[in-house]
């Protein structure tokens, strides 16, 4: 076994230090060492998008990074997007528009949705479908996710694009 390495990550606004083997994926470290189990593992080879997080503000697959690579980085997980009890508009929209069923893809979907709207405040359904194609959902057939993201985009625009 390789020596553990000490890693400091800013997670959802707070600095956290963990000690991990170099081979440990960032996804596993988020779940096991940081205790944030909202980041899900669906494939561990970068296809499904369930482990999507924001790394320094950009969407990435946390199963395709090692935890040691996140040393010094800022990450945002699903647990970090609500403002206290106030849900992020993307979270509210997913519930209101039935953009989730089993909920397993939902954390990754919501983060991907936030990313899309952050780059395109008024995305068309087709743009949402193309931009979010890296996130798989097995339950919804996607239509209601597209509706959710569109609805959230409208709210986010009205709120001045704050995320």
């Amino acid at each position: 076994m390789a020596e553990n390495m000490s890693v400091v990550i800013n997670v959802n606004g707070a600095g956290r230090a963990v000690s991990v083997e170099p081979r440990k994926t960032l996804a596993d470290a988020i779940r096991e060492d940081l205790g944030l189990t909202g980041t899900h593992l669906g494939c561990e080879h970068g296809v499904c998008g369930a482990c999507t997080i924001l790394l320094d503000g950009e969407v990435v697959r946390s199963c395709l990074m090692l935890a040691v690579q996140a040393d010094g980085a800022e990450i945002t997980t699903i647990e970090g997007i609500a403002d206290g009890d106030d849900l992020h508009p993307m979270q509210s929209a997913f519930s209101e528009y039935h953009g989730l069923q089993c909920g397993f893809c939902t954390p990754g979907m919501i983060l991907a949705g936030i990313d899309v709207v952050s780059r395109n405040p008024d995305p068309s359904p087709q743009e949402i479908r193309e931009e979010m194609g890296g996130n798989i959902c097995r339950c919804t057939g996607y239509q209601k996710i597209v509706e959710s993201v569109q609805a959230a985009a409208a709210v986010m625009s009205a709120e001045g694009g704050s995320a």
């Binding site: 647990e79 849900l87 519930s95």
Partner: peptide, 19 residues
């Protein structure tokens, strides 16, 4: 009716087997 299942799931606080 809105789904009562959703509240934890949209916050990343669902509790799946791996959790």
């Amino acid at each position: 009716a809105p789904r009562r299942e959703d509240a934890p799931l949209i916050r990343g606080r669902g509790r799946y087997i791996a959790d």
